[in-house]
C-alpha cells in the first residue's frame, strides 16, 4: 500500500504513541521482576529498575523452597484445569439446546437462566447451601458452585445460533441424535469461541481468592491468590498481640511471590490470543 507523506507522519506518530503505551504496560512487570532478583538494599533504591544491578537469587530460592506456595500452586492449577474443562462441558450442554429455535419452551428456559444474572440470595444462604452439600473444605468448592457463567453461556449460545442448520439436518438424516451432533459437528466448529470462553474461565479461576477465603478453612488447600493476599497485602496486625512477634518478608521476597503468581498466565496468554481475538469477534457479534 502506498502512503502519502501526511499519512506517513501520522503512522510514525501512532507508532510513538503506541510504543509509549506498551512501555507503560510492560514496565511494572519488569520493575517487580527486577526487584525480586535484587539485593535488599538495591530493592529499596528509588528510581527505575529495569534489571537487577547485582543478581541475588535469595528471594526466589526462598519462594521456590516454600512448601505452602507449591501446594497452593498445585491446587490452583487443579482448579483452573478441571474447572475450565467442566465449565466448557456444562456451558455447551446448555447453550446448544437453547440455540435451537425448535426447543419447546425455549424462551422460558432462557428467562429462567437470565434472571440469575440480576438476583442472588446473598452470602449466608449461599454458604448454607455449600455447607449442606458438603463442599466446605473440599477442593470441589472451587469448581462446582461457579460451573456456569451465564454471560459466557449466552455468548456460546449466540455462536451456536449462527451455525447453519443444513449441517445439522444432513447429520439428522444420517440418524445422528442431538448429543452426537453437538459433540461431532457443533463443538469442532466452535473451537475459537470455546477457546475464548476457556481463557476467560481459566483467568477467573486462576485469579479467584474469595471462595477460598470463605469456604476453605484447611490451610493446605487454599489457592495461590489467597496465599499471596495474606502474604503481601493483608499483613495487618491486630490488638491481641501488642508486640509483633513474627518476621515479615522483605520486599524482594514479596516481589518474587507476586511474579510467581503472575508468570504462568503471562507465559500462556500470548499463545492463546489468536483464538480469543477471533472468538470474541464471532461470539459477541452474531445475531
Amino acid at each position: 500500500m502506498r502512503l502519502t507523506k501526511g499519512e506517513k507522519i501520522f503512522q510514525w506518530f501512532l507508532i510513538v504513541i503506541i510504543t509509549m503505551l506498551c512501555i507503560v504496560m510492560v514496565y511494572p512487570f519488569l520493575h517487580v521482576l527486577s526487584i525480586s532478583l535484587s539485593t535488599p538494599a538495591e530493592a529499596l533504591r528509588p528510581g527505575i529498575h529495569l534489571y537487577p544491578k547485582e543478581i541475588s537469587l535469595f528471594a526466589w530460592e526462598r519462594v521456590l523452597s516454600t512448601d505452602s506456595i507449591w501446594r497452593a500452586f498445585g491446587i490452583t492449577v487443579f482448579r483452573t484445569v478441571v474447572g475450565t474443562l467442566l465449565s466448557l462441558v456444562f456451558m455447551s450442554m446448555a447453550a446448544y439446546p437453547l440455540s435451537r429455535k425448535y426447543l419447546p419452551h425455549r424462551g422460558y428456559y432462557t428467562t429462567f437462566i437470565i434472571i440469575t444474572m440480576f438476583f442472588g440470595g446473598g452470602l449466608i444462604p449461599t454458604y448454607l447451601l455449600i455447607k449442606s452439600l458438603g463442599l466446605i473444605n473440599s477442593v470441589w468448592v472451587y469448581i462446582i458452585p461457579g460451573l456456569v457463567s451465564t454471560f459466557s453461556m449466552l455468548i456460546l449460545r449466540n455462536f451456536f445460533m449462527g451455525i447453519p442448520m443444513e449441517l445439522e439436518d444432513s447429520a439428522k438424516i444420517d440418524g445422528a441424535n442431538d448429543i452426537r451432533i453437538l459433540v461431532q459437528i457443533i463443538v469442532p466448529l466452535s473451537a475459537p469461541v470455546l477457546a475464548t470462553l476457556a481463557l476467560w474461565a481459566a483467568v477467573a479461576h486462576w485469579n479467584n481468592w474469595f471462595d477460598a477465603m470463605l469456604y476453605m478453612q484447611d490451610k493446605t488447600k487454599i489457592t495461590l491468590q489467597l496465599l499471596l493476599r495474606r502474604l503481601v497485602i493483608a499483613n495487618m496486625g491486630d490488638p491481641m498481640m501488642p508486640v509483633p512477634t513474627e518476621e515479615e518478608d522483605p520486599a524482594m521476597v514479596k516481589a518474587a511471590i507476586i511474579m510467581f503468581t503472575a508468570l504462568p498466565i503471562l507465559v500462556v496468554y500470548p499463545f492463546l490470543q489468536r483464538f480469543f481475538v477471533k472468538g470474541v469477534m464471532v461470539g459477541s457479534l452474531k445475531g
Binding site: M25, V203, I258, Y269
Partner: peptide, 18 residues
Amino acid sequence: QTISYLPHFLSWIVIGGI
C-alpha cells in the same frame, strides 16, 4: 495489541502488590 492485553490477565491482588 498482545502487550496491551497483558495487565488484564492479572488479579487485583497481583496488581495491588505491584
